[in-house]
Each structure stands twice: as structure tokens, then as C-alpha cells.
Amino acid sequence: MPDQPPYAYTAFGLNIQSEIPLPGLLPGAPPVALDATPVWVRQGETPTSLAQPQFSGVLYQTSEGEFLLTLENIARYWVRNGQEVIVQTFPNADEAAVTLFLLGSAFAALLHQRGVLALHSSGIVIERSGEKQAVLFAGRSGAGKSTLAAAFHQRGYPLLADDKCAIVLQDGRPIVYPGYPHLRLWQDAAKKLAVDTEALPPVRADLEKFSLPVEEQFHAAPLPLRAVYLLNTHNALEIEMTPVSGMNKFRQLLQNTFRQRFLDGLGMRPAHFQLASGVAKHVRVVRISRPMHPFLLDELADQILHDLEGSHAASAQ
């Protein structure tokens, strides 16, 4: 990292130029860029509301090409045209929190503006006959995405993204661009994975949720998308896996799009529909229901590997 701004980082195949340091992002330029237009993260004044909002949620407003998110005592984020995020930090804000919401919802809006499918998922890399492919674990907050990705990472599978992935179509095929090189884990998930949180920074002050940097075995280049596993919990004691087909695949990709409510006000719904339907055609989607407690982490990882094996054999015939 250069010690003078702008700092250069990469995530989702984007070239990020930032006036503020963004610890936890991969420094430098992307090995394979998604496109040539850089993203600027600047510090500056932001409007208190958009001139003509198409939609107003509890903490955000959207209009075509614009997104405004306000977190009291932390910061306001103004995201414009998929190219620029202006951050107005409030007095005495916790720096970690400022970065957290920047990399979370503000970057989600940025990806939406760029017409990229931001899937609410964590991703790992599997290798088959020399070819690397992306496998994603999608689901709502609390479904177990990060925990499962961490378990795969511990087994030696490279991490591709945590919490959100960027998917685009290239030559009609879905390609996943990597996210951030860290895993965010709650205290009890860390314990399950035998990760000591003592020395780890919390994602923000007052939360027992930690950021585990993934320095080794992070895959920084884009990969073809192989499969999406949709994580759900149920009150039965077994793991159930059900392949999803046809229109339901498309529907699931819509439902699992990160902050998909932003799309309407941004005017990006039609483009997103088209992208999701293109992705749905070329990806295996499997719905998983697992018990809430116990998580059955090892069994789940085994069953996913088994499913990948089986589906590979089937598609090879």
C-alpha cells in the first residue's frame, strides 16, 4: 500500500482508488479487471437527501444512478453512477464501522449501478482436472455462509469471497469476481472452527463479530461459476439437499441478490432480471436445509463435495 493517498485496492475486479485507507481490502490493481473504469472513494460533503428519490427506505434513498445511505454517528455514503462513493464521516465515528458499511451496503449499491449481479454469498474455489471453478454459498444473514466458507478454507480450499460475490456474464457464461480477503465470524462460529478471536479485530466496536484476514489461499482472479448452494435452517435434525430447477433457479438468484430492494429505485431491475436469467441457465443450484443446532458443519461440507462430485459425473455423461 502506498503511504500517500490515493490508496489503490481491488475487489470484484474493480480498480479502487481511495482517499481513505481501507484495511482489509486487497491492495493493488486487479489481476484481471472487470472493466477499465475505476471506482473512486472520496471524502467530502454529501447531501442530506437525494433531490428526487425514487425510493426511500429506513436508512437509504435511491434514484437513477444515485444511492444515499445514512448511519447516525458513523457516516453518510453517496454512491454515484457506479463510479464514485463519497463518504462523509461523522464526528467521533468508529473507523471500523465507517469501513464496514462502505464495503457492505454502499458497495452493494455500486455493484448494482454497474449492472453486476451481487449475490449474497460466500465463495470458495474447487479444482477439477486442472480447472478452477467457483462454488458459492448463498443465503440470508445468519444462514451460515461465512462459517461454511471458513470450514472449506480450513480444508485447504481457497477463499473467493465472503458475504457477497460479483457475477457477470462473459461470452454467455457466468464468471465470479472475487470479493474481500477476510471472513467475518461471530464468536460462537469462530469457536466451532477453533479460531482464536483474541487477537482479531472486531468488525466494529461493541460487536462480538470478528474479521479473520485470509492472507494465504485467497483466490484473487475471476473464475467460472460452477454451483450455488442456498443455505437455510430448519428444525429437523438432518441435512436435506434439493436441486432447484427451471424458473426456480432464476427466482432464487433474485431473492439472494444482496440488497435487492435497491434495484428498483436505481432503475436497474430490468437489467438485473436479464443477468440473473442468463446466470440461471448455466449454474447448478441446490437448496440446503440444515439444523440450526447442531450446525453439522463437517457433514455439510462432505455432502456438498459429494454433490459436486455426483453432478460432475452426471454432466460428463
Binding site: 427506505g57 445511505l69 448511519l71 444473514s141 468488525v203 466494529r204 460487536l207 430492494r261
Partner: peptide
Amino acid sequence: DDEVGVEASD
């Protein structure tokens, strides 16, 4: 989460 625009988990 849907109404607010950031996740309660943060």
C-alpha cells in the same frame, strides 16, 4: 434487513 438497507447483524 430488507426495510433498513443494512443488516441487523452489523
